[in-house]
Design a protein around this nucleic acid. Sequence first.
DNA 1: AAAGATTGACTAATCAATCTTG
DNA 2: CAAGATTGATTAGTCAATCTTT
Lengths: 145, 145
Amino acid sequence: MDFFDDLVRLETSLWNTIERRLASEGRIGLATLQALQVVHRHGGDARVHELSHDLGITIGAASKLADRLERDGLIARRPNPDDRRSSLLSLTARADILRREAAVVSDEVVNRLVEDGEDGEDVGALSGAIRRLQARLGEVAEVRS
Amino acid sequence: MDFFDDLVRLETSLWNTIERRLASEGRIGLATLQALQVVHRHGGDARVHELSHDLGITIGAASKLADRLERDGLIARRPNPDDRRSSLLSLTARADILRREAAVVSDEVVNRLVEDGEDGEDVGALSGAIRRLQARLGEVAEVRS
DNA sequence: AAAGATTGACTAATCAATCTTG
DNA sequence: CAAGATTGATTAGTCAATCTTT
């Protein structure tokens, strides 16, 4: 199971590296960035359910995450007109700016790692392989509860 | 920064999938397995420092992790003869059995994903690329504090 | 002073129970 | 009853302060 260990180690190291860079520049944290990106990508259709699914956390965790983002003025909840059980989440103007700025920093770190090395062209193939494995793992990968 | 997102998503999905399989068989959790593997790999020379380094968590978190493992009878702390500031960590006999059993399950999940698909031979290259990127990221990847 | 580890206050995750709406 | 979400109790992480040993 060397492959899995290597995968975890790289993900952890890269995550920590990006997190440090963001902190050193006084930006939002990487976990917050990931959450804001989910809301952004879903346009006006983000619910707590999408946070849970896309981040791979439980519904309970996603609900509390939305609470914190709302408390910090990063998202707004408005009633879902199609289903009164849920709310629709959207980024505040300020959050969208912070999101974009942090994304630039994160991209910089990743690109510096991935580009202009001898391994430069590996990355296309690498990304493809990762996405194929992800597809293979498929819908089996939901979080319980 | 698609590459990083894909990496995170695969790692998360695979982690959750393995975790569910372990839980369904009544084994130790994946985080515990990872910790026991670190102690195992370091032979008699594991300290709290190694847990922190290899798992990518802070020293404080590693210290508390060692507390829990010790409390649950999975590791023993004995005084480090060479340096009285630290203890040496070793697996209990029971922990080594649980570690091996859980590793088999984890390997099964990963191998089923990775082998005998059309992507079978990708994985060698994939692992290599991941390890090269990890090396490139290098020692920069320590956790602060 | 620096290195290794521990501890307390805080933050964020899980799980289970519960509430509301479909 | 299902699905979506919230909440309370518990668990595990971070950070900062501290203690001991080098």
